[in-house]
């Protein structure tokens, strides 16, 4: 009981510190345009801001959607830090998921909270370091980073990242994975053939992540209620361990062996 109370207070403090740091970071980030105004004695061109209003509105929606989608995945500390440091879908979320998977901790537990927060913190620090070094040595690095031969490699980080992750997650959770994967493939392939390009995909992804999440939760719930995902936890004498763990494929294993993943 005492330990539970202590855990709650640690969690409460995480939220408190997260909010304080978040507010300080937001104030500093927002100050940049206004400090630039003061330094150069310039005023805002409201025509330009007006032109950008549509883009801003779109990303306000994306921001709201990301909050509801990624917050449950990242844990308390990871959420506050991840949303301040950004690059969530292309770096922080996959990094946290990979580390939780490798450490063999179960999502939603305090161990997962620790691993998720640590991985996002380290990822943020390393990103800052890489970018600082990049900025310092920009004149040396620009010819390499802008090399036309290397450009396709830098353009394909997301496919390279999610290819590896998909094998791990789909092989372990194929029952839950099948329907959303088929749906998303259909949506993106059809939209690409209709428009004859890839521009729509970049816009669609912001919307399709929450759609994919909601659809997957819905379909998993139906399968769970029908007993297709193994024993139910809301019935008398039910086992408490999720069944999906028995579905391991050839993907690398976590440190706690059978306790990895979900």
């Amino acid at each position: 009981m005492k330990r539970q109370a202590k855990m709650r207070s640690f969690d409460d403090r995480t939220h408190l510190y997260g909010r304080i740091w978040g507010l300080v970071a937001a104030a500093l980030i927002l100050s940049y345009p206004f400090l630039s105004m003061a330094i150069f004695g310039a005023s805002i061109d409201w025509k330009i801001v007006g032109t950008g209003l549509g883009i801003m509105a779109m990303y306000w929606v994306v921001g709201a959607v990301e909050t509801f989608t990624y917050t449950p995945m990242l844990g308390s500390g990871g959420t506050y830090l991840g949303f301040v440091t950004g690059n969530l879908s292309n770096l922080k979320v996959p990094c946290a998921l990979n580390c939780m998977e490798q450490a063999g901790v179960k999502s939603g537990t305090e161990e997962a909270e620790v691993i998720s927060t640590m991985s996002i913190a380290v990822s943020s620090i390393v990103t800052m370091l890489v970018l600082v070094l990049g900025v310092i040595f920009i004149s040396f690095l620009t010819p390499v980073l802008e090399n036309e031969t290397l450009a396709p490699a830098f353009d394909n980080v997301l496919p390279a990242l999610f290819g590896g992750m998909a094998v791990v997650y789909i092989s372990k959770n194929w029952k839950i994975a099948v329907m959303p994967c088929v749906l998303m493939l259909l949506v993106f392939i059809i939209s690409s053939y209709i428009t004859g390009g890839s521009d729509l995909a970049s816009t669609l992804i912001g919307v399709m992540v929450p759609v994919g999440v909601l659809f997957t939760i819905g379909s998993a719930r139906v399968m769970y209620k029908k007993g297709w995902l193994g024993e139910r936890g809301d019935l008398p004498n039910a086992e408490t361990a999720p069944e999906g763990k028995a579905e391991n494929g050839d993907a690398p294993q976590g440190e706690n062996g059978e306790n990895k993943g979900e």
């Binding site: 999502s107 997650y169 399709m208 992540v209 929450p210 999720p242």
Partner: peptide, 19 residues
């Protein structure tokens, strides 16, 4: 447990489609 798995899979499936 399944809920968390569904969250991860929803995101991964969206990026699979995006590719």
């Amino acid at each position: 447990g399944h809920f968390m798995t569904a969250l991860f899979m929803g995101m991964i499936s969206a990026f699979l489609g995006y590719v």
